[in-house]
């Protein structure tokens, strides 16, 4: 029996660390979503399959810019020393995933803008007819399409991985010390992005395609999640204890219900039924996937902060 007491009572640190509130999970979620969107868009352009993919190709880039900006807003809100925000861009720290992230975010904008340029929203083309001409010309250039596609896939992948690596690099939190966190967040980003597309898409073909894709992503995500937990459980006692925070600890309910059941398993079932035409397509499933993606970030950020090396 060990009795451990400490006199420390620092805000955000004691009794359990809680430095990040809602802002960072929201930022990670939106970042992942945008990453997924970029990969999907990029893939379609790169492979020349953008015909009849109106939603993915023409709605998503603009939406992505918007969501990313919201995400960065959340990140900014989280900073404690806001007037010094610009210091992020006064240096590049190669060892710091967060520094990588800051610069990756800067690459996201031109990549998405380039994609956006291929089919500008109507209000813009109405005001600047010249731009509309330009985007029509570019749409006809296969090289350009491949370049934009490749850039979006590449930057999107970096962004998606980074949202996970950001946490897994903070080795002091046993729950996060898993190399699977990057891939997990990447796949989760893809699944939420695909869900968003098949929710918004008007064209039935596009809808089915993305629902299919989403099912693959969701399945992969479930697998990665399982591997992630098994990995922790089979590592040190400290890591196992961290895994138990999700399995049967303070975050158990949110994890099992919010992330696994409502966020993955149920929508997966619904979408499988839908693509097999057993039931109608419903926006409920993709909405659940999106909510599940957000819940995943919330659970992992919150439980991860509470996980600790010491037995306190």
């Amino acid at each position: 029996m060990i009795e451990l007491t400490t006199t420390r009572a620092n805000p955000m640190i004691d009794p359990t660390m809680h430095v990040w509130g809602w802002e960072i999970p929201v930022y990670l979620f939106l970042g992942g979503l945008v990453a997924g969107m970029m990969i999907l868009v990029g893939y379609l352009y790169f492979s020349g399959r953008h015909q009849n993919r109106d939603c993915a190709c023409f709605v998503i880039p603009g939406l992505g810019l918007l969501l990313l900006t919201l995400g960065m807003g959340a990140l900014f809100l989280d900073l404690e020393h806001k007037p010094y925000f610009w210091r992020l861009y006064a240096t590049f720290e190669p060892a710091s995933p967060m520094s990588w992230g800051a610069w990756i975010l800067l690459l996201v904008y031109p990549a998405l803008l380039a994609a956006l340029l291929l089919r500008l929203p109507a209000p813009i083309t109405r005001r600047f007819p010249g731009l509309a001409e330009l985007s029509d010309r570019l749409l006809g250039e296969p090289i350009w399409l491949r370049a934009v596609g490749a850039a979006n896939v590449a930057v999107g992948s970096l962004l998606g991985l980074y949202t996970g690596v950001l946490l897994s690099a903070l080795g002091a939190r046993p729950l996060w010390s898993s190399a699977l966190l990057g891939p997990l967040f990447l796949v989760s980003g893809l699944s939420t992005a695909a869900a968003l597309v098949h929710m918004l898409a008007r064209h039935p073909e596009e809808r089915v395609l993305f629902a299919r894709a989403d099912n693959v992503f969701l399945g992969t995500e479930l697998l990665l999640l399982a591997l992630f937990l098994v990995g922790l459980l089979s590592a040190t006692e400290v890591h196992a204890r961290a895994a138990h925070l999700l399995l049967d600890g303070a975050w158990g309910a949110l994890f099992w219900v919010g992330v696994v059941a409502l966020g993955i398993v149920i929508p997966l079932g619904v979408q499988i039924a839908a693509v097999r035409h057993k039931i109608q397509h419903t926006p409920v499933a993709p909405l659940l996937v999106l909510a599940g993606g957000l819940a995943l970030r919330f659970v992992l950020v919150a439980a991860g902060q509470a996980s600790h090396w010491s037995p306190l």
């Binding site: 620092n10 640190i13 989280d78 404690e80 806001k82 002091a172 090396w309």
Partner: peptide, 13 residues
């Protein structure tokens, strides 16, 4: 910038 990554990264809090 007060990003708190360092707080989260310190095993000793």
């Amino acid at each position: 910038i007060g990003c708190k990554a360092c707080l989260a990264s310190c095993p000793y809090d």
